[in-house]
Amino acid sequence: MILQALAFYVFAAITVASAAMVVVSRNPVYSVLFLILAFFNAAGLFLLIGAEFIAMILVIVYVGAVAVLFLFVVMMLDINLTQLREGFLDYFPVGALIGAVLFAELLLGVGIIGAGSATIAGLNEHGAQVTAIDNTRAIGRVLYTQYFYLFQVAGLVLLVAMIGAIVLTLRSRPGVRRQKAGEQINRTKEQSITVVKVPTRGGV
């Protein structure tokens, strides 16, 4: 019990600290790396309340795919650090306001929905309930039955986003020779070579 509490405070402290470093650190690549650290510790928090499936999915999706692409883009961009810092004070009040609203909402959510269960003891009670049936199975049982339409709608939203991204980046570039594997394989001997009998001194 005391070990779990200790683990909770370690994970929570590192999550908050690295989230702060995402905003504060001067180099954007460091920001992404701290973001990854924050994801990891959030996954650790999920593990502590017995939600191992969500913890793993968090690592696979956010750390394994999303953050890689962030890192990819941030590393390739030629970011001017001084230019980036210029508007900091102008934007600070707006950012602080948004942060305050989010924080207030979080407090409200914890206060209303999870009354009493937001303490570590409460979380552990939840954990005991969840582990009675292993929670991958529990999610599987409701996701494709009870929440089937919501699941489909989520899929549609992602599909639209994907099509949007493709449309934005698709442009036909003239003059680019593409390799078409099908054409290459379907080529016959007759189409590609001709055997010419060259007369001596005559040339082709």
């Binding site: 990854i36 191992e52 499936f53 793993m56 999915i57 690592v59 696979i60 750390v63 394994g64 795919a65 890689v68 890192l71 292993d134 991958t136």
Partner: peptide, 16 residues
């Protein structure tokens, strides 16, 4: 219980 997911998660970290 989530052994395969764990392996998949860790192997996706190798790229870092």
């Amino acid at each position: 219980n989530v052994g395969i997911l764990y392996l998949f998660a860790i192997s996706s970290l190798g790229v870092y």
